[in-house]
Write a protein that binds this DNA or RNA. Structure first.
Lengths: 347, 347
DNA sequence: TTACCTTTTGCACACGTGTGCAGAGATGCT
DNA sequence: AGCATCTCTGCACACGTGTGCAAAAGGTAA
């Protein structure tokens, strides 16, 4: 059994309330007593019980974070941003992975409720809107990150995917590409639609046609699915000279398949990614991508949530807050001008 | 304020103790009352408070996990294994990243203690032995995963790094390589030493010389550091024909640098990784590596810890338990026979 | 009816911490 | 001395849940 506040009280010959006040720095207690108690607590290795404290104060100093997968380096970097921020402000994290599984999502929400997390950050873009409402209805402050059902959450942090995708596409157009394809991830809802939207906008602004068969969606974001998609694009009568991939992991798969199929990147085909995960800089050729400020997104989300918690006590200002962060185009080696002899389309 | 057990009691016209028993499935309560209470609790959206419960029961149903970095896909897969296992058995995870930072390590240990985590899994191989002892001295059941200071922990899960590295090296020797270098990560202590040891054993068993300058250590596991190391090996008077890298991330960096320097892999140089992270299959060429069963390691660690928690109550059997898991050699495309014209060494 | 047993429920306390309030002691002022 | 004021500490209760024990309710037998 761990040493309690009462053990410290007994040892120092005071009441447990005095110990409580002394350790919390209450000025009511004389500085000599405070020092004596601090000393004893230190020696006895006393650690306050978070459970007892939060039972009394109704605050846990813990934030819940829901991601779809812990192993995904994309979420990893967001988590790093969140953690750095909350730790600095004295909070800890309760992390759960939903794995796109509705059953797990229910369990996670229940666990968060039982743990009485002070707030929740939802990083899983596909996290069920119903479960999100569940959390809100229980009074949890919730901050959504890149969530597809934007309308459900008052507080959220987004990356400007439309703009990013537009910039990526414009870059390819500027290089001279006209037959550009989009490879999406059907599972990521709003995110893939936004990126498709930016793609379409850039194409139309340049007066270029968006061919039906150049829009292709796969059921996930694994490199393996990206690799598979190359076969699809290759069997088209008129092949694209560039592929805008939904994210880096898909692009990595595309690069791999091209390499195996003897398609030279960027000579025969330009490929772009999105997100700028660590490994995108180490592919061959290095991936041209859009740097989504993952770490900052994590920080902003955590800051927003913590601010929310601290203002809530004062007056309850229900101002809706949505922050959109801008990323940066990163031109590396997987994009180049199309070959001059590449067959062109005029109709 | 969340609804409490007393609210449910008031609503159903019974005492809070009856509600507590009914919801816990105590057979003392008649089945009709139990059903009526269950119904009401459901309707009112009652969720028991984990804090109050654990204050009373002295169990939190939460396990702490300490990793060095959340963003590292290697730990991500271990975490997946741990999570799948504990969730099935009704536990949740409290995850913290030490980032190789002693200050953070202290904070993490303190947080775990305050949270009264039922047990702790240390995945960070470099986690300070002193902090580990701290946890043990407070009575925490601790399971160490691939920890460098094996002697400090009674309960641990290890991957057989010596054997893995031996197999990797034997594979290269079988291909005809004789000038083989080892690229280590100085920060990972025991792990890098074990892999170096396996390397040395294989070399000596084949009667091959281990040249001093072929053993090179960098200060971390980033791809960038792997890339930097290529310059070192290139300036050697007698260059190696193969490099055994400490892990996949370093190897990915090496591949990248080779690509940029015009060194063809595997024609001019064979490169091997270790761990088999997802991206190692998607490099060009695909990386020959050693598949460490990360998911299983996570599962085994979680199972060991949970078993520990459940037997501890009965009789306290202090049997030391160490489990060593075997991996599997994965030959892909980054290794091949050395070029016949490659200068040989005879002395 | 009383006595006794079984089933079901409530009382009361405990877990470890925080805090309003009262009270003890010290000090200063008239 | 008497009183007010200030500083410091302890009492007692609360947070939400679990549980030993007593007791109420209901049933059966004499």
């Amino acid at each position: 059994m761990a040493t309690t506040i009462k053990d410290v009280a007994r040892r120092t010959g005071v009441s447990h309330s005095t110990v409580s006040r002394a350790l919390r720095g209450n000025t009511l207690i004389s500085s000599e007593t405070t020092e004596r108690i601090r000393q004893a607590a230190q020696e006895m290795g006393y650690q306050p019980s978070a459970a007892a404290r939060s039972l009394k104060t109704n605050r846990t100093q813990v934030l819940g974070v829901i991601v779809s997968s812990i192993a995904d380096p994309f979420f990893g970097e967001i988590l790093n941003g969140i953690e750095a921020c909350v730790q600095e402000r004295g909070y800890s994290l309760f992390i759960a992975a939903s794995q796109h599984d509705p059953v797990k999502e229910r369990q996670i929400v229940q666990t968060m409720m039982e743990q009485r997390t002070d707030g929740v950050i939802i990083c899983s873009s596909s996290f069920s809107a119903e479960q999100g409402r569940q959390l809100l209805s229980y009074g949890f402050p919730v901050v959504a990150v890149n969530h597809q059902a934007a309308e459900n959450f008052h507080y959220s942090i987004y990356h400007d995917d439309v703009d990013g995708s537009r910039q990526i596409t414009q870059h390819l157009i500027a290089l001279g590409h006209r037959k550009i394809a989009y490879l999406g991830n059907a599972r990521s809802g709003r995110t893939t639609m936004d990126r498709l939207s930016g793609f379409t906008q850039a194409m139309q602004a340049a007066g270029l046609e968006v061919r039906q068969e150049y829009i292709y969606h796969v059921q996930g974001g694994d490199p393996a699915l990206g690799a598979d998609s190359v076969a699809y694009f290759q069997q088209l009568a008129v092949r694209p000279t560039a592929i805008v991939c939904f994210n880096d992991t898909l692009a990595i798969g595309v690069l791999k398949a091209c390499n195996q199929a003897g398609i030279r990147v960027p000579d025969d085909l330009s490929v772009t990614g999105f997100d700028n995960i660590t490994y995108s800089a180490f592919t061959s050729p290095a991936l041209t991508t859009f740097d989504q400020p993952k770490y900052s997104i994590g920080e902003e989300a955590a800051n927003l949530l913590l601010d929310l918690l601290h203002t809530k006590d004062d007056g309850h200002e229900e101002a809706e807050r949505v922050k959109v962060l801008q990323g940066k185009l990163l031109v590396r080696a997987s994009t180049a001008a199309p070959r001059p002899d590449s067959q062109d389309i005029h109709e």
